[in-house]
């Protein structure tokens, strides 16, 4: 695919913007054109947060993703809001610990990932976002080759200790069996 339009959505505090940034940097380091656009304002502090990421072989036009090829949702309001925007043939990734609703559409691929539960079990409760991101990378056919470099760019120098746990969380999702 020449252009992949990704929409991440959930609550503020779930790391929605961070995982979007991870994805954008992965595209950048792979030599692609990328853009990242967050929702901003009060919703960053606890309301519904979302973030548009575009990864393309061509220059990115509008940075706003209104018809996602890939939708990652980490709360029910976001699923209700964006489910019908996904293009036919697109992929929806659902944190099934937090959302027990099933997608009714049959023209999209849906992946139910109990990311928040898995994260809690492994005592990494803040990394559900990276687990579901790992699963998404697997399903869109991305490789994990450059994740050390990518995490090196987005994990701040003070928190280098978090690099390994982020990596583990991504791999956990990537290697998850259906």
């Amino acid at each position: 695919m020449a252009t992949t339009n990704v929409l991440y959505a959930g609550f503020g505090g779930q790391g929605i913007l961070f995982s979007g940034k991870f994805l954008a940097y992965q595209g950048l380091l792979a030599g692609k054109h990328v853009s990242w656009l967050p929702s901003y304002g009060p919703e960053m502090r606890g309301g519904t947060a979302n973030c548009s990421v575009i990864i393309s072989d061509e220059e990115v036009g509008s940075p706003i993703v209104s018809k996602p090829d890939v939708l990652i949702v980490m709360n029910l309001p976001s699923l209700d809001k964006y489910e019908n925007d996904v293009v036919p043939g697109g992929k929806i990734f659902i944190d099934s610990t937090l959302i027990d609703k099933k997608v009714e559409r049959t023209d999209v691929d849906v992946f139910y990932v109990p990311a928040t539960g898995m994260a809690a079990e492994r005592k990494i409760p803040t990394l559900a976002n990276m687990i579901i991101t790992g699963k998404m990378l697997k399903e869109i056919g991305a490789s994990l080759d450059n994740i050390d470099a990518v995490l090196g760019k987005i994990v701040s120098a003070r928190h280098q200790d978090l690099l390994e746990v982020n990596k583990d969380a991504i791999k956990l999702g990537y290697n998850l069996e259906e």
Partner: peptide, 10 residues
């Protein structure tokens, strides 16, 4: 505008 200010690009 707010979009240009908030978006990230290379």
């Amino acid at each position: 505008d707010g979009t240009m200010g908030q978006m990230m690009e290379p």
